[in-house]
Amino acid sequence: MSSQEVTQFNLIFAVFSVLFVLQFALRQFLLPVLPFMPSPSSSLVTAAGLAGTFSVAGVAVMVSVLTYAARVPLRWLYFAAVTLAVWGGVVAGLVYPDYYYSAPWITVALLLVALSLASMALALRSLSVIEIIAMLPFVAAQAISLISYVLNVLEEYMGFAIGQSLILPYITLYMAVAGALTSLAMSFIAFRPRPGVMARYAVAAALAFGISFPLYSLTANNVMMQHIMDMVFALGLGILTTPTSVPLISALMGVYAFSIVSLLANPSDGHRYMYDGALMAVLMATAVGSRALAISFASVIAASVSVYYARGRLSGNVGKAYY
């Protein structure tokens, strides 16, 4: 594999990551949260909405490009499925607005779910045992979400009375706790006692404290703010929990911020942890999001095949066989 191809893939992945984070921060998190701010300006809300819309359209482009660029097994199947689901759906919506509950489209959605699970399995296969353990909470959250979605489709659209009484209160909270601890462990594994690395970790810690402490102070002894932030976490992050556990979530937010920033800023093993961190973020963000959009499944596939490709490439095992 040429260095040019490596550079190209890294650039594509970077564009995807930036757009994904932007659409999550602006569209999924900030827009529902802004009304809870004491005095949000309407121009800020409008700007955030437009930037979020731009980002989600960009992610829709990049999922196809990434699955094409990542030389992985079945890449043409991934590429075709992602492109069909994301852009075929847009075209279908223009000519037949009811397409999304027609039998062919239900089949496409189920195929996309199956490919999401397959791509996650491939991504895990490329990780070390420690990394797999660290990733398990995210994978579990995503798997539960996907299975729940399949059960819903089978019941609502195909009449299978499987009995989807899948009541999992607070499952996302438990996953968030476990995920925070394991992502923290992963960031420690990646740590190297070098001045540059230490400086980056210090910046990550400062950022984490800056996010976590004000939120904790705001909610520690304020039942109403707990109530408000409880809804913010549910709406913005999909974490269903009780108001009394909101201070705990505030601390977790800091742990996540520290772990992901330190991983993304860590160049010690090439882009190894950057890809892991990105996969974590995508799995968590899409696991708790609405399943009404094909882009959720496509993002999981794009991030997973990227990790598989990048990790295989770094270890020298994967690449030319799949050109």
Binding site: L50, T53, F54, S55, G89, Y100, Y101, L112, I295
Partner: peptide
């Protein structure tokens, strides 16, 4: 493509591809 499609969606949003979901 990102710039073009992003601009199209900002100016004239088109429904994103849906997946079957929810109550029927």
């Amino acid at each position: 493509l990102v710039v073009v499609m992003g601009a199209v969606y900002v100016v004239e949003p088109v429904a994103l591809a849906q997946a079957p979901s929810g109550i029927v």
